[in-house]
């Protein structure tokens, strides 16, 4: 599995362990998000601290679920953006719409 989940207070942290750089990893990532959505989770934190790369397929999934959770009154946020992931998020202006949070402060 390229992802794992853990619960912190009212949030579910979905940690991505492998770079999302092909169709296979993109689909596994989508499955993990779909499961959380189906369970009725509202607050999702994507922990991207373990990965260095993500392709448009992966970003597409994040944005798709960002909207789905928002429409259900929930929210997706991200945490631990590494150098290259942060660069991608900043370059594509994703930082403007997806909040970045620090879990340690929670």
């Amino acid at each position: 599995m390229i992802t794992s989940t853990r619960r912190i207070a009212n949030k579910v942290v979905l940690t991505v362990h492998e770079d999302i750089i092909d169709l296979k990893s993109g689909e596994e990532f989508k499955t993990a998000l779909t499961e959380l959505y189906a369970k009725g989770e509202k607050n999702i934190v994507l922990d991207l601290g373990d990965i260095q790369l993500i392709n448009s397929h992966g970003i597409g999934k994040i944005l798709m679920f960002y909207k789905k959770f928002r429409d259900e009154g929930g929210q997706i946020s991200v945490t631990r953006l590494s150098g290259s992931i942060r660069e991608i998020f900043e370059s594509l202006l994703l930082v403007n719409i997806i909040p970045e949070i620090s879990l340690e402060k929670e």
């Binding site: 448009s56 597409g60 944005l63």
Partner: peptide, 15 residues
């Protein structure tokens, strides 16, 4: 377009 789920492939490739 920022929140669209697609349309950023070329931008990512360019990087």
């Amino acid at each position: 377009n920022v929140s669209k789920p697609s349309g950023r492939g070329i931008a990512l490739a360019k990087m």
